[in-house]
Nucleic acid binder design. Structure first.
Lengths: 183, 183
DNA sequence: GGCTACATGTAACAAGTTACATGATTTT
DNA sequence: AAAATCATGTAACTTGTTACATGTAGCC
């Protein structure tokens, strides 16, 4: 992992939409980017601290009674410049590590039943994801009017849908193939 | 990364096909599993050492003149049992981190031209991948007869193809959408 | 009364990449 | 003559996950 962390850019991108606290950054990423990105608090909070030091964001502390201070971060001009610099760069190809496929592949050396189990599990997972996406779609449709970013949110949802459907297509093919193997 | 490393299982799966040296494990993974898995030597060599200690494999050292000893690893019964234990377990959902999509999403807050650049780059990458796959397909067709594992190799290639085509579909939709935005 | 959401964070740990080190052999 | 392939490995480094710690507020 000597590769540069992208956490900084994920945060900058979120703050470029509007000032937010760490908690909201994660919540928003989960809502709108869940099909292609994730961050944990263990990354976000320490990074936000660093980003204030390096002047990519400013911090406003809101004291609250009986609750931890809320910290609202706002992107600076320097932060915007850094975000734009990154946006212009070509993306790193993301490392692929799909454990389900690995199991499928090695299952080949055991039994056809094992292979069928793996395919069935993949299909189940994809079906669950598609249901989630249906829920998201409903939410988008109702929030569309208010949120100016909803159009991009929708395209990110389409990404999830298209990939899931593709995965189902693969499951169909793989299943057919295994059926032939069995008899 | 407190999650259990899957490197051990990737190696077990490869050795279950047949005895191999570390170099060949990587080479074979690159050939047949490149669309869903990757390992680096920095993971493979130390792990192989551990696996001998924990009796998942045996090692045979072949001395060679003027070249480093070649080490051939063979899976043990214990190793096979461990592989099968893992195969029965449901797969961890793989963490999604697609930098290209992240850039696309945040590009929304800059200019339509930036968004178009991101889409174009994704399409280029996918096209390159599809060409690579065409080469692989040719190789599979010629090696099919000899390699009994080629049928699964082919399905793993189909995975790559289906996913790439899906990505292209998404690019088409996204492009259309941005064209509308521009007017 | 219990669960979920809100809100902040840290520490321990493991995983994984990259650069380095070495050098023969084969292909272009 | 240069580049790629074969073949082994280690060390330094960073990234990222998970578990823990703390507590209120609101919902069912």
């Amino acid at each position: 992992m000597a590769r540069e962390s992208k956490t900084k850019y994920a945060i900058l991108g979120m703050l470029n939409i509007g000032p937010k606290c760490g908690y909201d950054i994660k919540k928003e990423l989960e809502r709108s980017a869940m099909f292609f990105w994730n961050e944990s608090y263990g990354q976000i909070y320490p990074m936000l601290k660093k980003m204030v030091t390096s002047e990519l964001t400013t911090i406003e502390v809101i004291a609250r009674e009986d609750q931890p201070d809320m910290k609202i971060y706002t992107i600076t001009n320097k932060g915007i410049a850094e975000l734009e610099r990154w946006l212009k760069l070509p993306a790193d190809p993301h490392p692929v590590r799909n454990e389900a496929m690995l199991k499928f592949y090695f299952g080949a050396n055991t039994t056809p039943a094992m292979t069928q189990t793996h395919i069935a599990r993949m299909r189940d997972r994809v079906d669950t994801q598609l249901l989630e996406m249906q829920n998201q779609r409903d939410r988008i449709d109702s929030e569309m009017a208010e949120d100016p970013n909803a159009l991009f949110w929708q395209l990110s949802l389409r990404y999830g849908e298209i990939m899931s459907e593709a995965m189902k297509t693969w499951c169909d093919e793989a299943e057919e193939f295994v059926d032939e193997l069995k008899g």
